[in-house]
């Protein structure tokens, strides 16, 4: 059954008619066209669908859209400001933290959540924070280096 969902998405207050059984992932991708958030394993195991909800990471493929009613949702599309990449995005670009790119939005959002809580993490803290995000190209070293680069 559809009902009105009101929430903040990338800084904008929205009101949409959303079905009870709609996943946050499908709401973002299909209803809002925010396809930066990826559908990976589709069962909460890979982290590709990580978005931020009130600054904390959340797996959009195992969250119902209505579960985040009234909250602040941020996706990869919300990080760039005035057409400029965020520091973290720039660092992933410069340090080659991206290979095929499919896990990258999830990696960046999980790393963004870490940096908001801990602005100067060690390599170990970065690895721990990203331990739920899989990269099938296995470019983990470059990813950790990219997050470090964003801090320095």
């Amino acid at each position: 059954m559809k009902s009105i969902l009101s929430l903040w998405v990338n800084g904008r207050l929205r009101e949409d008619a959303v079905d009870s059984a709609t996943l946050l992932l499908d709401y973002l991708r299909d209803q809002l066209g925010l396809t930066g958030t990826k559908q990976g394993c589709d069962g909460g195991e890979c982290g590709a669908c990580t978005v931020l909800v009130d600054d904390r990471p959340r797996l959009a493929c195992i969250t119902l859209a209505h579960q985040v009613a009234g909250r602040r949702v941020e996706t990869i599309e919300g990080l760039a400001q005035n057409g400029r990449l965020s520091r973290l995005q720039q660092a992933f670009h410069e340090k080659l933290g991206t290979q095929c790119g499919f896990c990258t939005p999830g990696m960046i959002m999980a790393a963004e959540a870490l940096l908001r809580q801990n602005p100067d993490p060690t390599a170990q803290e970065i690895k721990t924070a990203l331990s739920g995000n899989l990269c099938r190209c296995t470019g983990y070293v470059k990813i950790v280096e990219a997050v470090r680069e964003a801090v320095l």
């Binding site: 909460g44 990580t50 990471p57 999980a110 721990t128 331990s131 739920g132």
Partner: peptide, 9 residues
Amino acid sequence: VAGPTHRAQ
């Protein structure tokens, strides 16, 4: 338990 994102949720 699981990964950090699961634990936040």
